[in-house]
Simulated assay, not measured.
Amino acid sequence: MAIGSGLGAQLGIAAETTYGTYKAPTQFIEFTKESLALKKTTAQSAGIAAGRLLALSSRRVVTRREAQGTVDIEVTNLGMGLLIQALMGTTVTPVKQATSTAYLQTHTLADTRGKSLTIQKGVPLTNGTVTPKSFTGCKVTSGEFECEAGGMLTGSFEFDGKDCDEAQILAAASYSNMRPFHFGQMALKSGAFGSETALDGIRKVSCKIERPQDVERFYANQSALKKEPVANDQVKITGSLESDYVATTLDDLHTSDGATSLVWEFTGALIESTYNDTFRITLPAVKLDEGPPVVDGFGVVKPTFNYSALYDGTNQPKIEIISAEAAL
């Protein structure tokens, strides 16, 4: 029997073979908050019947079912692969690094068609009974990462789902010895792609990757459920860089509207040989939209530069993970 509060909750995920077909969880995520919920559309008969003052409950019907919500996490050295694959789109097989026990995942930006998840959450009743809710056909519509001075690297994933199934058996949760990435491990670099150098004065970084999709594919013959969402707009990657004004590097890029490659990297504990736990976002072409320095008092000038990532014509944005995991 679990604890009858959020302390007894769990969240498991699995990559689906077929969109919307339940797959038992293969990984369990340590999350900080979630809002996944069934969303239903109903219609009520309005037929007039002499003397009837209320609409008949038997004449209310469910015309659409879907699921929506977000999951907030601390980004850790293990268990991130399936979420990042669903966000970025590339089918990834971890590559063993030399003869070590370290494996590299390279998640390059691609179409997310065929990348859906089953997400099962366990919600505890106050008596300790955990109710399973399995969300199928979960497509990532956005992922946002953020880290500030003194804090953890956090991630927030927004999902659109096909349905919620409450008949599946609650999977038994198990957890690896995960370690969170944090500000003390953070580096930010800019410059020409492949030869970026460290930026000084950075206090906080954020990056949001949006995957616009047509989530309204409700057709006849689908039993009120949608077909797999399809990309219907270009990917949007935006973020911000909060800093102290210690150099003019970012200021000059804002003035000239020049492009720079941006590498945001976290280096954790040693796995083996020269390979460490690593989480790295590479944006080959970034332009600064706003945020030139202004003086608003006696203190240190602290500009916040907002940026947009674009295509440099050759290199796609990517997220790389080095971990001890041989499979996602």
Rank of each mutant, 00 (worst) to 15 (best):
A173R: 00
A324I: 05
A285V: 03
Q222L: 14
G313V: 06
S35K: 06
A9D: 14
P229C: 08
T108Y: 04
K189P: 00
K287R: 11
Y103L: 07
G6E: 10
T93C: 00
E148N: 15
L117H: 13
G291L: 01
S58M: 07
T41I: 08
I48L: 05
T304E: 02
F28M: 00
Q213G: 12
G137I: 12
V230C: 03
I119D: 02
N232R: 07
E210M: 07
G161L: 08
T274A: 15
A324K: 07
A37S: 15
S261E: 03
H182W: 13
T76V: 11
T129I: 14
G128P: 14
K33G: 10
M178R: 15
K189N: 02
R217W: 08
R203T: 13
L53R: 02
Y245D: 09
Q85D: 03
L78V: 11
S308M: 09
F135T: 05
R113H: 08
E325A: 06
G161Q: 01
T41G: 09
L82W: 00
G184F: 04
T42S: 15
K133Q: 15
A285D: 11
I202Y: 03
A46E: 09
A326Q: 15
V230T: 12
K318L: 08
E146A: 15
T108E: 10
S243F: 01
V71S: 10
S57P: 02
G150Q: 04
D200T: 14
A198C: 01
F193W: 08
K302Y: 04
L153V: 09
P303V: 03
T131W: 04
L7M: 10
F157R: 00
K189S: 12
Q44V: 08
E16N: 02
D163E: 05
L53K: 10
T93G: 00
I322A: 14
T93V: 04
T136V: 15
H107Q: 01
L253P: 01
A43P: 01
D312I: 07
S45G: 08
E74P: 04
G191A: 03
N127S: 13
D72C: 04
V246Y: 09
G299M: 12
T197A: 15
R65P: 04
R203H: 11
T76D: 06
F298E: 13
K96Y: 05
Q185H: 03
K162H: 11
T131H: 09
Y103Q: 01
G313S: 07
K226N: 14
T314H: 04
L36Y: 08
A46L: 11
E144Q: 11
L250F: 00
T108S: 15
E196Q: 02
T248D: 14
A110E: 14
Y311T: 07
L109S: 07
S116E: 04
M1L: 10
Y22R: 09
T76M: 15
A187H: 13
E210L: 06
S240C: 05
G47K: 03
E265C: 07
I13N: 02
A172N: 11
